[in-house]
Amino acid sequence: MESSSNFTPFLLFLSATLTVLSSVSANSEGDALYALKRSFSDPDNVLQSWDPTLVSPCTWFHVTCNQNNRVTRLDLGNSNLSGHLVPELEKLEHLQYLELYKNNIQGVIPPELGNLKNLVSLDLYNNNISGIIPPSLGNLKNLVFLRLNDNRLTGPIPKELVGPPNLKVVDVSNNDLCGTIPTTGPFEHIPLNNFENNPRLEGPELLGLVPYATNCS
């Protein structure tokens, strides 16, 4: 009986510890999303419910969480937002869907997005994003959909993007990319029109004979 009575306080302590850790994680994710809100201009007040004083962001509009109150989805497509993405998004460790298409987002794609190991869909199309496609996106082993079309991206298509084994859709059309189109890994099955309207982007690599990033500075 004595050992049983000693075990009960331990269970209570363990439960309290897990609750605190869950709260800390939720606060960290809330902080990351609030950093994103601060970086945006939001004329239609779609982020009005994003209250940083709440313990968890799971009650905020356009945010979806799992049963453990971890953010898994961010749906802000076609929301008339402008501003830039923030590196703090890497704190959303369980994020699967980052939907920010059809806005007026400027600036670059933070390389820290390559730390979102659970990301399935990265939809940033129809914005005003510039800079390069970060090679770190090749770390996203669960990525299926990568839509970056209709932006102002420059530089080559990173060779690291042949790595994600589940990648099915890549669309980088209507940018200013350069170099050559990879043909290995997932790129074996990506239609060429998903690369069109990049004036400095050349055709597919030919058995490795075409130098990578030709005509690309």
Rank of each mutant, 00 (worst) to 15 (best):
N175L: 02
S23R: 01
N142M: 04
N215V: 06
R200K: 08
L33Y: 04
K117Q: 14
S82L: 12
Y125F: 15
G138I: 09
W50Q: 04
F10I: 11
K168Q: 10
R70N: 14
S22Y: 02
I109W: 10
F145K: 09
L81P: 05
N175C: 02
P110Q: 09
R38K: 10
E99A: 13
D123N: 08
V120H: 15
I181C: 00
A32T: 00
R147Y: 10
A32P: 00
S121C: 08
E93M: 08
L14K: 05
M1R: 03
T64H: 14
L54F: 04
S15W: 02
N118S: 13
P156K: 07
S56G: 05
Q67P: 11
L124Q: 03
N149Q: 15
S121D: 13
N174E: 00
A32R: 03
T183G: 01
P186H: 03
Y97C: 05
L14V: 11
Q96V: 05
N104I: 04
F145L: 12
E2V: 11
L18H: 00
L113V: 02
L167W: 03
S25W: 03
R70Q: 10
S41V: 15
N126R: 14
D44I: 06
R70D: 06
S15P: 00
K91H: 12
V46F: 13
K159A: 13
L47F: 01
V172K: 04
S22P: 00
N27H: 08
S15A: 10
D123S: 14
S130D: 13
E2M: 07
F145P: 05
N103C: 07
L137Q: 05
E188S: 02
T180P: 00
P204N: 07
S28D: 01
V86I: 12
I129C: 06
L113I: 11
V63L: 08
V55Q: 14
S4G: 07
K102L: 09
L21P: 00
L177G: 02
